[in-house]
Design a protein around this nucleic acid. Structure first.
Lengths: 108, 108
DNA sequence: AACAGGTACTCTGTATTGCATGGTACTATT
DNA sequence: AATAGTACCATGCAATACAGAGTACCTGTT
């Protein structure tokens, strides 16, 4: 039993929610999202976020456009779609219910 | 992209926490835990909880004792160990940090 | 123009876990 | 003895976070 492992498991399914929420506020590219999540103490690495973004895009929740950068290779800016906004709305409800339930159970 | 699937993913890693928390309040057997979690709207089924309890026991976080029942087969009552209490304490901190971080990110 | 360093994106394989499903065993009731 | 209810257990699958290795582009220095 490993605390780090359990932490990782707790994060499962939450990243989708966080990324949709961030992109609903403003468009961003992957490295930018990683930095934002790190600042919020939600550890994420490249190998996690790139497949996730691709998955969300393939499911129609996100779209993207290329943009040139003055300090490196071009960036893939991701935008949330209407479908993504609808899904985010449901996830928000789900998250609230989940935290309520957990807090109820764990506070005895 | 499936909401039910995402919900299931969000639940990952949280069950450990809930079960340790419940057992820190009082000992219980599997079916009893399932009912408690269902009442709190945290869906759990047998196929999920039995392997989890076994895992927690094998890791030394739980122990158990058999007790006869007047209305069916004997029950395996699980108890939290000192190691389990220590782990629960860390999980509590982890859960707080996680919800704080998610709420910060998703409320923009 | 060749090279180094930084930035950005991609792919593969692994470990873990929630869950569906089916099965075993014990008790009480009919 | 047959059925229904309760409790426990085992197997296999699907999904995902992550490590690690790799590709490609740009800028600045030599």
């Amino acid at each position: 039993m490993n605390l780090e492992n359990t932490k990782a498991q707790m994060r499962k399914g939450i990243l989708e929610f966080c990324i949709l929420a961030l992109l609903s506020q403003k468009e961003a590219y992957a490295s930018e999202l990683i930095q934002t999540l790190k600042d919020a103490k939600l550890l994420v690495v490249e190998g996690t976020i790139y497949p996730l973004l691709t998955r969300l895009k393939n499911d129609g929740l996100l779209s993207y456009r290329w943009e040139e950068s003055t300090s490196g290779p071009p960036r893939k800016y991701y935008l949330i779609t209407q479908l993504g906004k609808d899904f985010l709305s449901e996830l928000t409800t789900t998250w609230k219910q989940l935290t309520d339930s957990v807090n109820k159970v764990t506070r005895g």
